[in-house]
Structure formats: C-alpha cells, structure tokens
Simulated assay, not measured.
Amino acid sequence: MVSERARAKLNRIAAKMPRPPKKKVRSLAQLRADWKKSAIDTCKVAVDIIESLLERACAAADAIRARVAAVVDVALAAVDVAAVVFVMNGGGRFHRRHLHAEARRHLALVLRGRRRDPGLDERIVNAALDTHCLDISEPKTTRGLLSDYRLYTARWSLSDLAPARRPPTAVPDPEKQPPAGPGAPALPRPPDQEPGEW
C-alpha cells in the first residue's frame, strides 16, 4: 500500500523525467511497405501470397457481399430511425441531425460496408419527418426557423403503446387489518367483550 505522500513524490519524479522522443511520422505507403517486409521476413508463407494479400482480401469481401443481398427499404428504415431517436432522446424531442445520424447508422448496419446511393440517408430522414414526426418548434429567433434548428417529436406517444401487463392486485380482506402504528388511535372494542378478553 503506497501512502499519499509517497504517491505525490513519485508523481513529482515522473513529471521531471524526460519523455522518450516521439517516433518519426511515416506515411501510409511507408507503413504498408514496412509491414510487408516484416511479414515476408517473419512468416513462412510464399512471397507472392503476401504481396497479393490485399487483392485476395478484396476478392473475398466481394464474394461475401455478393452472397448477402443488401436491400434498403426506405419506409421501414424511416420507422426504425424515428423510433430509435424518439426513445433515445430525453422527453422524445429531437432535431433533424439526430435522425440523420441514426439513418447513417441504420445504413451502415444494413449495407454491411457497401457504398450507399448518394442521398439515401437524406431520403430516409425526409420520409421519417413526413410520416412519423411532428414539428413542435416554437422559434423565438430567425435562426430557429431554419430546418436544422426545428424541434420534432414522434407522431405517436407513449400512451399509444400497448400498456404493459400488470399482475392482478389482491383485494384487501376487510377482516384482516394491518397492525396499528404507535401513534394511531385505538380500534374500537367489540361491545360483547371485556377489556381483558382482547
């Protein structure tokens, strides 16, 4: 267990020690050449395999993408994006940028690294705004009139969602009464009993 005093002294010593010199910055092409040379020197694989590794990886990725069809349904994506943003933002209020970020995340998940059509995320955001969102802005400045500063919420509310099933509550038995607290008034005595009997 190191005391606070010893820890403070070690921190002062460490602060005074010279740091090792930073490595020289190298370009990506230099790094790739060094990695390739290191792989050739250390691996027991044919040199042509290492040199064609990038092409092999690209060919494998193309084969995998060809087997997995990526279809983007704009209407379904709009529902998904609006629902996620509604739930993730406090009070169910959000801006257009939140929808945009979620649309890009949705596309990255669905397309699995493929290039997306230009403007596809914008189409999803517009579909979400038109179909599932309600503008609740009350702009007080001219900047608040711009589309990026508008405030939205979902057209559905939490009360529209199906209520969660609750376990049935037990009906209180009028014969069984909870014990009275120390400051509670005494219960009335039944008329046919004497004080010592109860």
Rank of each mutant, 00 (worst) to 15 (best):
M1I: 01
R12F: 12
I13N: 08
A15Q: 03
P18Y: 00
K23V: 08
K23A: 07
V25C: 05
V25Q: 11
Q30G: 01
L31H: 04
R32W: 02
D34E: 12
W35T: 12
K37M: 05
T42R: 13
V45Y: 02
D48H: 15
E51C: 05
L53H: 15
L53A: 15
L54M: 07
L54T: 09
R56G: 14
R56C: 13
A59R: 04
A59E: 09
A60H: 10
D62P: 02
I64Y: 14
I64S: 15
R65F: 00
A66Y: 03
A66P: 11
R67I: 08
V68L: 12
A69I: 09
V71A: 12
V71Y: 07
V72L: 01
V72K: 06
V72S: 05
D73H: 01
V74K: 01
A78V: 00
A78R: 00
A78T: 02
V81F: 03
N89Y: 04
F94T: 03
F94W: 05
H95C: 06
R96C: 05
H100G: 13
A101M: 11
E102G: 00
R105K: 12
R112C: 06
G113A: 06
P118Y: 03
G119L: 00
E122P: 01
I124S: 04
I124V: 03
I124T: 03
V125Y: 03
L129C: 07
D130A: 13
T131G: 12
T131A: 13
H132S: 00
L134W: 05
L134M: 11
D135C: 05
I136H: 04
P139V: 00
P139K: 03
R143F: 03
L146R: 14
S147W: 14
Y149Q: 06
R150Q: 07
T153H: 11
W156T: 02
W156E: 05
L158N: 13
S159L: 14
L161G: 03
A162L: 15
P163M: 06
R165K: 13
P168N: 06
P168E: 11
P168L: 09
A170L: 10
P174Q: 00
E175T: 14
K176M: 15
P179V: 04
A180H: 01
P182E: 01
P182I: 04
G183K: 11
A184Q: 10
R189E: 09
R189M: 07
P190S: 15
E197W: 07
W198S: 07
